[in-house]
Design a protein around this nucleic acid. Structure first.
Lengths: 172, 172
DNA sequence: GAGTATATAGTCGATCTCGACTAGTTCATA
DNA sequence: TATGAACTAGTCGAGATCGACTATATACTC
């Protein structure tokens, strides 16, 4: 279990999720992801997207359905998900939700070398961080509140990280 | 501010931190990092380490001091940090601590496609995750407690993630 | 003293990832 | 009506990253 995936970029999960709904072309995926705020949870770069789409096709998880061209714009390839793709999507998603995996963050790295700085400076920096977080979180919270009517799934979603970090600073 | 670093892998921060203490060779860095548990906060692979060391050298942040060979073992190059390296280390560390940056986690990605699963299954999976976390955290906590005497810096350090995730599940 | 497990010290090739760039289109606006 | 911004739809090359592999030395065990 938890064997290595042939396409491991989380963006691939997003692609499959979107194609699970209906066939579409790459650029449309970007647009949809942005509309739905998925780019907040999955790192989204054009270049990665196209390479991930290519990889998924190689692995037979998605297939091109048609290539259309409007006017003199570059042509767009519409993809659809395959049976194997659906299966892979569900397996992967289940695994992500069920099994905690070690995640490395920049901040954790920074914290672990805290000792390289004089204590007063460390405290000052972390306090500053605290202020940044507070104001960012306020913004997030209010955006969430106003968006709550349309999208009822997210709810609390990002705000917990606030608690985590507040605790850390409190601890210092 | 927050301009792109020439060597951006957090492992580079670790290397500079170690060489800040005293010159050493690559393999010794691995040993020390493991001893001190730094590999819990910074992803550590041999291959990445050697390439990071190479990059740091190219950038003039560290320099080889001598190459020694014991018996017929592969030769080891001892590195030391330069003035520029010290400066870069401090700047980077300060930035990491001061400025919150968006971090993408696997779990966040998974959560954001939760809707792809039937609600009961989602709940079941997250509950399972909760159990895993609980037992893992228990282990962590006891290891921390026993190690507390020797290393007094870490204290709460990893345990807050427990709270974060417990809150998330509670929310579901 | 033979076999095997573990520690030491790395290298190499394939893939992944990203930033920078291209190139046409639509829209506002001066 | 020219001009510049923003949108649409990608490509490309450089560099980063990782898994797998090599090779010697030491320790343990039967």
């Amino acid at each position: 279990m938890a064997s290595k995936r042939k396409v491991s970029n989380p963006l691939a999960l997003a692609v499959m999720a979107l194609l699970y709904e209906r066939p579409m072309h790459a650029y449309e995926m970007v647009t949809l992801m942005r509309e739905r705020g998925k780019h907040e949870s999955v790192r989204l770069r054009y270049s990665s997207l196209y390479s991930v789409v290519g990889a998924l096709e190689r692995e037979g998880l998605i297939v091109p359905r048609e290539t259309v061209r409007e006017g003199r714009r570059p042509e767009r390839t519409v993809y659809e998900i395959t049976g194997a793709g659906r299966e892979e999507f569900l397996t992967w998603l289940r695994e992500l939700l069920r099994e905690p995996v070690k995640e490395y963050t920049q901040f954790a790295a920074g914290l672990s070398f805290l000792a390289g700085l004089p204590p007063e400076e460390a405290v000052a920096l972390l306090k500053e961080r605290g202020r940044h977080l507070e104001s960012e979180n306020e913004g997030m919270r209010s955006r969430l509140d106003t968006a709550m009517e349309q999208w009822n799934l997210p709810r609390l979603f990002l705000v917990e990280s606030e608690h985590e970090l507040m605790l850390r600073e409190a601890e210092l």
